[in-house]
Simulated scan of single mutants.
Amino acid sequence: MATIRKRELPSGKIVWQADYRDGSGKRRHKQFTKKGDADAFLLTARGQVRAGTHVADSQSKTIDQAAKLWLAQVEKDGKERTTVDRYTETYEKQVKPRLGATKLNAVTAPTLQTFIDDLVGTMSLSSLKKVKGCLVSVFKYAVSRGLAAHNPAREVALPESNRGRKRPEMPTKEELRSILTNTPARWQPFVRLATVTGMRASELRGLKWSDVDLAKGLVHVRRRVDKYGEFGPPKSGAGTRDIPISAGTVAMLKAWKKDCPSGDLELIFPTTTGAVEGHANLLHRVFHPAQVAAGVTTKTDKVDGDGKPIMEAKFGLHALRHAAAALFIEQGFAPKKVQNLMGHASLQMTYDVYGYLFPSDDDDQSKMAAMESGLFG
């Protein structure tokens, strides 16, 4: 039987004690300074006991304890090392310092909302999403193991997705041509294919000759390679896709196939020994030097021996993916087609990033003039 009684502690302090039995029949109690708080707790606890979700304070684990169990399970489930590393880094750097010692059953949605609100302005929206995703996953694991009654992280709101969103930076057509011209011949097929397909660098690094149908002019995106050189599926289900290529690109690949280093992996863009090429190598030994040679640079705060500003490459490899999307849109591909070619998980994602590039067939100026004429005469 659940009851609430008034008690005087040896210190003389008056408290209200809620007594109840948990799901296993064990007697539990919790003290409050206000009777209303005791009433509210007992009402919630009784409902949780009936639902089989109640966790007593003494049995509740901390967020840190639950997070370690969750991360161990993620690794056991065979997630890619880069994924495990990302989860671990987000938890260790953002969540643990402030919330790690807090018990799961003491965490409320307002508690987590305040935590997220305090982070707004200190990091990008994508980073905020990772922090929330980490909390949601920890509590989801805890609920499934009976360590928490519910998942308060699901109720946390993030800032509006479009607030402060920057348009992606990408090379112009002239810059693209100049970069390709100044890229070493050995790597021109890589830069060209990235530009005309919009494939992610990880997908290109994992691309095999068996993934390309040179007769039909199709590239089948079926895998990617992480920073450890390990193969895995594309970033999302939508990442598995087929991308058409022109006769000119097919001819380029046929010519490159004759000189491509051979290896057991049968990669299209391997190292000289046929192994997986590293992202950093492509960036710092190929793409960045090609931009500097092409004059596609930006000024840094550093100066050389003569006191002149040191110039550095303007773009990362992902800029080629943005450029490809812009080219698709310029050619008149429908939004849904652009989504499919880019491997976006949703059409909304395509619009969020590239919506401003899609042309409008409406004569907006004429409509505005008509609106004002009807209003002002």
Score class of each variant (00 low, 15 high):
262 S>N: 11
243 I>C: 04
213 D>N: 15
255 A>Q: 12
216 K>G: 06
270 P>W: 05
227 K>S: 12
247 A>N: 08
210 S>W: 00
293 A>F: 02
272 T>M: 11
279 H>A: 07
211 D>T: 07
235 K>I: 00
212 V>G: 09
210 S>V: 04
242 D>L: 02
207 L>W: 02
202 S>V: 04
239 G>F: 11
233 P>A: 07
194 A>Y: 01
236 S>T: 15
225 V>M: 14
263 G>K: 05
276 V>L: 08
260 C>F: 09
222 R>G: 09
207 L>Y: 01
286 V>S: 01
200 R>V: 08
273 T>A: 15
234 P>K: 10
195 T>P: 00
194 A>F: 02
271 T>Q: 14
240 T>K: 08
197 T>S: 14
243 I>V: 15
269 F>K: 13
196 V>D: 06
292 V>Y: 07
279 H>R: 10
214 L>I: 00
246 S>A: 10
284 H>L: 05
251 A>E: 10
213 D>V: 14
204 L>G: 10
244 P>Q: 05
247 A>Q: 13
220 H>F: 07
240 T>F: 06
209 W>R: 05
281 N>T: 14
246 S>N: 01
258 K>A: 15
221 V>W: 04
267 L>I: 00
292 V>F: 05
195 T>D: 10
276 V>H: 13
275 A>E: 15
285 R>H: 08
289 P>H: 11
230 E>N: 09
293 A>L: 09
203 E>A: 08
232 G>T: 04
200 R>P: 01
209 W>V: 10
293 A>V: 06
251 A>H: 00
283 L>W: 12
203 E>N: 13
234 P>N: 03
219 V>A: 01
246 S>L: 00
218 L>Q: 03
235 K>S: 03
270 P>K: 11
238 A>D: 04
288 H>E: 06
253 L>I: 09
256 W>T: 03
264 D>W: 03
194 A>W: 01
231 F>K: 03
253 L>S: 10
251 A>S: 14
198 G>V: 05
230 E>R: 11
231 F>D: 01
278 G>K: 12
287 F>M: 07
232 G>P: 07
262 S>C: 07
236 S>F: 06
